[in-house]
Design a protein around this nucleic acid. Sequence first.
DNA 1: ACCTAGTGCAGCCATAGGGTTGCATGTCGT
DNA 2: ACGACATGCAACCCTATGGCTGCACTAGGT
Lengths: 110, 110
Amino acid sequence: MRAGTAVSGQVVAMCSALGDETRWSILTALGEGDASASALARRLPVTRQAIAKHLAVLHEVGLVDTVKAGREVQYRVIGTELSATARRLDAIGTEWDRRLAALKHVAESL
Amino acid sequence: MRAGTAVSGQVVAMCSALGDETRWSILTALGEGDASASALARRLPVTRQAIAKHLAVLHEVGLVDTVKAGREVQYRVIGTELSATARRLDAIGTEWDRRLAALKHVAESL
DNA sequence: ACCTAGTGCAGCCATAGGGTTGCATGTCGT
DNA sequence: ACGACATGCAACCCTATGGCTGCACTAGGT
């Protein structure tokens, strides 16, 4: 089992989506309850259109889902994808540390 | 216990660092063994200076560590921070899904 | 029917950041 | 001592992208 396996582009996209403060503020806001883009724009210091863009990228990577409620579109946070990539990252990190421990072991056996 | 806790800036920085393909190629390369910036520049299709910049941000978030070996600087991947943030992300994702399940439960009890 | 509120789309601006070249410095081997 | 290689720093270019304004459209409420 090789260590340096090419990381799925999905992981990169997910991390890229999570690498923005505004997006996290949106996610945490949604964590307190479903909301529409306009509703989010009211509680956050950014425009609705900006929020709409962010919601688009969040939806792209599967972090949020849309629920049509009448004329508005409610957004809802989904934890599944996040947890999945988190586990992949954890595995990678563990693998690195495992390799490091092996290196250390070799060094001490000299 | 509230769900929408403000996410640590460390997590955002880490995700931002992981949101770049080139950085991942560097990390996976380092996963196969320690290497200097110049050594990495030889196997990757980017300049040494570009790699140096990436290594700087990776070092910033604690994904790599430096080991001075004579005149060159060897870089080494560290899994600890990655695993730590991965667990935090997993917890957040689980929390979201827990909330979602609760919502569903409420909906069904009507 | 009309007004209001929510959404979508397009265009524009400005900055961040990934990538480059160039040069100066520093260190190892011979 | 000197040449070769590794690093550090600075300046620069260009694209991606976060943010905005503006407009057209649609769907509810009264």
